Amino acid sequence: MGDRFQGRVAIVTGAQRGLGAEFSLRLAAEGASVVCADIGSCEQTVGRLRAAGYNAVAAQGDVQTKAGCDGIVAAALDAFGKIDVLVNNAALYGGISIDGFEAIDEAEWDRMMSVNVKGVWQMTRAAVPAMRKAGYGRIVNISSNVIFMGKPGFLHYVASKGAVWAMTGALSRELAGSGITVNALAPGYTLTDATRSMSTPDVVAALEKNILESQSVKRLIEPQDLAGAVLFLASEAAGMVTGQTMTVDGGTITG
Rank of each mutant, 00 (worst) to 15 (best):
G2M: 10
D3H: 12
Q6A: 14
Q6D: 09
G7Q: 08
G14S: 07
G14L: 06
A15P: 01
L19I: 08
A21G: 02
E22D: 03
F23W: 02
S24Y: 02
S24E: 00
S24H: 02
E30H: 06
A32F: 01
S33G: 05
Q44H: 12
T45F: 07
V46Y: 00
G47P: 08
R50A: 03
G53V: 05
Y54P: 01
N55Y: 00
Q60E: 12
Q60C: 13
G61T: 04
G61M: 04
V63A: 10
Q64W: 01
G68F: 08
C69G: 03
I72M: 04
I72Y: 00
A79P: 00
F80E: 03
V87H: 01
Y93V: 10
G94A: 05
G94C: 02
G95K: 08
I96T: 12
S97A: 15
I98G: 07
D99T: 15
I104V: 15
W109I: 13
M113T: 08
V115L: 06
V117A: 14
G119K: 12
Q122A: 15
T124R: 04
R125E: 07
R125G: 08
M131T: 03
K133V: 11
A134R: 11
G135T: 10
V140G: 06
V140A: 11
V140H: 07
N141E: 06
N145A: 15
H156T: 11
A166V: 12
T168N: 03
S172T: 06
R173L: 13
R173E: 07
E174T: 10
S178W: 08
S178I: 11
G179A: 09
V182P: 02
A184F: 08
A184C: 11
P187K: 10
G188I: 05
R196G: 00
T200A: 14
T200Y: 12
T200L: 14
K209I: 04
K209C: 05
S214W: 08
R219H: 07
I221R: 02
Q224T: 12
L226H: 09
A229E: 06
A234F: 09
A234H: 10
S235F: 13
E236L: 12
E236F: 07
T242C: 09
G243L: 08
T245R: 11
D249R: 12
G251M: 04
